[in-house]
Design a protein around this nucleic acid. Structure first.
Lengths: 220, 220, 220, 220
DNA sequence: GATGAATGAGCCTTCATTCAT
DNA sequence: GATGAATGAAGGCTCATTCAT
């Protein structure tokens, strides 16, 4: 994936690979730090220490601490988009199953980790103050919204129900809200509990497809 | 309301009032700063300047910048709780109306302001890093959850539907997710649009009460 | 005693007395604070709190915190001078006894208190940095040195021994050094132990007067 | 000498040397500042400026300003101990000469500098308030006291005179008191004058060794 | 006179960035 | 390329002083 936040220096392949590896080491370390310490308390020293690298290296790979942070956000967004693309594609032509797979991606083991959710919210907590965070994943969001809307559109039954746009907004909002539950909730809800809730909501929104939207996931 | 984050010094009434006013000046200014600059960039200088007070005053009213911030969060939580208590009480005995009023509070003009939402998310973005933020509104959250659950419980129709607890989680999550939409969305959705969506979801969850859960709000 | 560091405002007698009392309350409190917290950590808030007065009062009695501190030093010096004047006068015409009484004043219960010694050293620790402290007790020191020298002069035996000036320096130095012992020593030496040591030294310096310089103090 | 107040980071030799040099630059600068401005007025800015280094460097070498200060005190104590160890060792087996050399160290050119004396007293002025200063040189003091006592013990003549412990206390106290004379005296006494006085006292305490305790120092 | 709330200069410390090795 | 020592701007907090009550 193209990652504009990594300083672009053209290199013979071997070097380019090594460069990408070290950059990834840093974004991974930064993600851990942000989830543990928060954006406010995370220092470049922390990140470098966790990555097992020197502080000076950070500015060799990223123009600034802020660019490193946006790279973290971008990698989260890319990872999520890659996941739902795979999930939806694997569902074939079954509209209900495609929607279900999309929603399930929100709660997949690789995505729905407390540390990653913490980082998403850390960035959302700053979008009003730092519009660049918004811009970083603007493309991903647009793709996400279009896909979700088209999935909803495919299930609409022509009745007086919700528009596809409205349904899509509701679905996405609920998923994000359930992430917040994972982050701040005290009820001990787990990833799979949240998934069940999200699928129940799908069933409520599309009662005619309820059976394909819930039930044993692997039976789809 | 009792606010333990304000340095407690017993005073004759006149003084106490003035003290509370100035403390409120500071939390108001802090809220504005946090919503504009984010928690990370908000400095005590910023807050003092916006409040039209001296920097030293902050530490006369709050033990630290962090205590000022928690006071901001607490005031948000108190304001919200006061709002839904009034809303639900005003709805009388009508269960559907009570739930509807509760949800509508999320989108009331005094609550659903972009700057306030920004502050909610700023704090949620740090809950993993600073558990004290969680503790600050723990009591309010519990009260909120219980109320919402009891409201859902009142509408359950004995069928094989969602448990009240599950419905409550879904409703709250959706509302929080819709707040995020207000914060990060690019579709220009307004407060009232979000409210409509939230009520539509209620109708989907409780189809037998749909008519009382949506429709002209003032007709309730 | 004339105290130039107290703001001079002419008043009818009753008021002047009250004024002096409150000023003394403050210097007493300051002495306690300095001995406990050191000059560096003592704040006007600390002093006011210990005096049971308002911070604003300090600047009503003293032009600045620094003036309050010099008043403390002056009161120490005055108290000491008053003590040895009384002691020497009470010794009548006996030269050895007069010297002995002078030295004993260094270790009198009213003078040789750890808290007061701590304050003496706190000021000595700053004399190079703040010559005003030196000036504050310059007059007292001169008087002290002259008296001690004349006392030593009275005991000189015309031999090839120490000059009175040298002996006086030695005696004073030893007494000050013994104060330091009280302040920093870990051997648990008490006031009376120090006095005994000081008198032993006198005896060593003036062996012909040894018996009158040591022995039962009250037998003098 | 082991110096625990310098942040310990194991390094290859070249680095370690440079590190020690820069740390010494800072303690030297701090000593100058403390002697000129006092502990109270010495700021990290002052120290950094005098050392020709950046303020941030101070915290790279010392955990806090207070740790820097204790390092200054420790270096004074170490320098003094090293001096008297050399002096006493060089005196061979002659007990009187050994004691004399010990006392002379108090007034050696490298030790008895007004700026260093000022710093000793600056710290003594705070020992009651900051016990850590006491602890910093506790070991040195114990060594010092034991050595002085053993030196005095070697000169005792079995008569009814002072115990070695008492004599040692007196000698040390007098030396410290003479330092104070250098610091606050107005008589223009110099280092060598103080030394002469101190040796006169030794002679008075040990009259049978008087000739070896005073007289031409180089004739020892 | 007595009070203590308000002020803001100045402190120590942190930390993103630079650059010599 | 990798390192981490050095830098210094900027932050939060303290506290001597002022002044309205």
């Amino acid at each position: 994936m193209h990652n504009p936040s990594i300083r672009k220096i053209e290199r013979p392949d071997g070097r380019a690979v090594r460069r990408a590896q070290r950059a990834a080491q840093l974004t991974d370390a930064a993600l851990e730090c942000i989830s543990t310490l928060g954006l406010r308390e995370t220092t470049v020293q922390d990140v470098a220490a966790r990555a097992g690298m020197a502080v000076g290296s950070i500015n060799q790979y990223f123009d600034s601490k802020e660019m490193l942070f946006t790279a973290v956000l971008r990698s989260l967004a890319e990872e999520f988009e890659a996941a739902w693309r795979v999930g939806v594609a694997a569902a074939g032509d079954d509209g209900a199953l495609r929607l279900r797979r999309f929603v399930e991606c929100y709660f997949a083991p690789s995505i729905c980790q407390r540390k990653k959710i913490a980082v998403w919210f850390a960035f959302w907590g700053e979008v009003k103050a730092r519009p660049q965070y918004r811009e970083v994943c603007a493309g991903h969001d647009r793709t996400h919204d279009r896909m979700l809307e088209s999935l909803c559109d495919g299930l609409a039954d022509g009745g007086p129900g919700l528009s596809a746009a409205s349904a899509a907004k509701l679905v996405a909002s609920t998923c994000h809200g359930l992430w917040l539950e994972l982050l701040t909730g005290t009820d001990g809800l787990r990833r799979t509990d949240l998934e069940t809730l999200a699928l129940r909501q799908l069933a409520a929104l599309y009662p005619r497809h309820a059976s394909r939207l819930t039930g044993d996931a692997d039976a789809g």
